[in-house]
Amino acid sequence: MPETPKCTDEILVQKSLEDVTFFGELVDRFEQKLKYYILRISSFSEMEAEEILQEVFVKVWKNLREFDGSVKFSSWIYRIAHNETISAFRKSQSRGEKEQVSLDEELFCIPSGELDIPTSLDQKLTAPLVHRVLNGLPKEYREVLVLKFLEDKSYEEISDILKKPMGTVATLINRAKKSFRDSAERQNITF
């Protein structure tokens, strides 16, 4: 596979369209991030997440010419990953499959100081609790909290990923934060 260490994602997209082998590098760049993202917003196992991920990259390849640079490539690829995960989740629900929740808790390490988590606390200690609270939240709240605090995306990026206006994203994040606090209180979880 050709080495392109200083290429931006956008240039790599152009190169991929000329030579499919460059697409492998795009896969490498986003594989881990997207896998974590899929695991954070769903309750799929790692193996299921990897299957979804493969479908995500095939879909990215099929739609690569749709990407026109009007949004960041990372936002565009996260959007596809998001849609594929939701689609896979619906399929699994229609098959009556139960949610799988035994995940690596470190995926839920929220930086201290965010979501009312005191800076003095160890992220590794709070991660299982964050995971438990997030798991009990409605899907749309969970999505925005994951994107904002675990994926560290800006409001504009979240808007592009979820295809929602920025004002709606801001409102959702505020409501989600309140819901997170309330849910934590109900479960007697204090950070």
Partner: peptide, 27 residues
């Protein structure tokens, strides 16, 4: 599945099934 394997398997699938990107005109 490690990262190398995934990129390889994706490329393999693309080439095996002869999947091509949809034309820009479609979008």
């Amino acid at each position: 599945m490690n990262p190398q394997k995934l990129s390889e398997s994706v490329l393999k699938k693309i080439q095996k099934e002869n999947i091509t990107p949809t034309g820009r005109w479609y979008f």
